[in-house]
């Protein structure tokens, strides 16, 4: 198990390194002159030169990358061009919104999706399954931001139960904060739950065809006990892989959903930074989001190995 963890940690660093390189190249090398991009049409020669100086663009590319990467390792993400505050401060502030949002959405998706998947597999071939499957099919096809608009229309505009957008802040109490995150989290979670349920169902149906399920039944285990002790547990292996990937979609979805609800999260930050051509903020925020995705994939891999003893070896 330790071997496996060490191996995966090595992979984790490799991915983070490659990702930072990709981000750096796309932002700083591809456009030619990032300073020109940031100033747009309005830039005169003098301010262009000043900005180049500020961004350290006169240094060679390799050195610029190293400065940025080592800076991040020390918690230094640069200074935002538009806000003139350290990006690290911005990120910390925005994380108080994005992190709870992602956590609630992931929890909701799992709590809803997995049991629904088990149910669908249990009721295979019955009418209730057909209904459930139809619902899941629609759920998978729902764009989350459209679902968000519908939720706003129903719960905020028509029923006036929950705020339509904005974030009250955690200072005003837990409920005030939660109430502004509830609709966004539901909008994010529902399509993901549908995807998870479908994967759980098909993984479970696959597993229930295995020989060891027949062995369990031959030992006298009831249908129910076999399903839970041998079926669901073994089906979790393929489900976990997907769960890791889901987080990547969740982050992507959060960027859009935060825009729909005007939530001051990371997604909104990076989106605004684009429209303000604040490349420093874009670069570091995207890096943070990528890191989050990679970390989640890493922990999912560890969980994977904890469940499946066949994986607790270092690969060749």
């Amino acid at each position: 198990m330790l071997q496996f963890a060490l191996w995966r940690i090595a992979g984790l660093w490799w991915t983070l390194f490659a990702a930072s390189l990709v981000i750096f190249i796309v932002i700083e090398v591809l456009p030619g002159d990032p300073a020109q991009v940031m100033l747009g049409m309005s830039g005169d020669a003098q301010s262009l030169g000043a900005l180049r100086e500020q961004l350290g663009l006169n240094a060679p590319v390799a050195q610029r990358y190293l400065t940025w990467a080592t800076g991040m390792l020390h918690g230094d993400f640069g200074v935002s061009y538009t806000y003139s505050v350290p990006v690290a401060d911005l990120l910390r502030e925005r994380l108080t919104v994005s992190l709870p949002l992602a956590a609630i959405a992931l929890a909701l998706a799992t709590v809803l999706g997995l049991p629904l998947g088990v149910l669908a597999a249990r009721f295979r071939g019955r009418l209730s399954e057909a209904g459930l499957m139809a619902g899941l099919q629609v759920g998978v096809a729902l764009p989350n931001f459209w679902l968000a608009l519908l939720l706003i229309y129903v719960f905020s505009i028509s029923l006036r139960w929950l705020p339509a957008g904005g974030f009250a802040g955690w200072e005003k109490g837990l409920w005030a904060g939660l109430s502004s995150l509830l609709l966004p989290a539901v909008a994010l979670a529902l399509p993901q739950a549908a995807i998870l349920a479908r994967i759980m169902r098909s993984a479970l149906l696959d597993v229930m065809h295995e020989d060891y399920i027949r062995t369990a039944r031959a030992k006298g285990l009831s249908r129910q006990a076999t399903l839970w002790r041998h079926g669901v547990r073994n089906a979790m292996i393929p489900v976990l892989t997907v769960l890791g990937l889901q987080f990547s979609f969740l982050i992507a979805g959060a960027v859009i959903i935060e825009s729909v609800f005007y939530l001051p999260g990371l997604g909104r930050l990076v989106f605004q930074a684009i429209s303000q051509r604040d490349l420093i903020t874009v670069k570091s925020t995207v890096m943070l989001l990528v890191t989050a995705t990679v970390l989640v994939a890493f922990f999912v891999d560890l969980a994977y190995a904890a469940i499946d003893p066949r994986l607790r070896k270092a690969p060749r």
Binding site: T15, V26, I27, F249, A252, G253, V255, L289, V290, A297
Partner: peptide, 12 residues
């Protein structure tokens, strides 16, 4: 897989 479409689109 660390770059969902929205993130790469944001970068690009």
């Amino acid at each position: 897989f660390a770059f969902p479409a929205v993130l790469s689109a944001i970068l690009i």
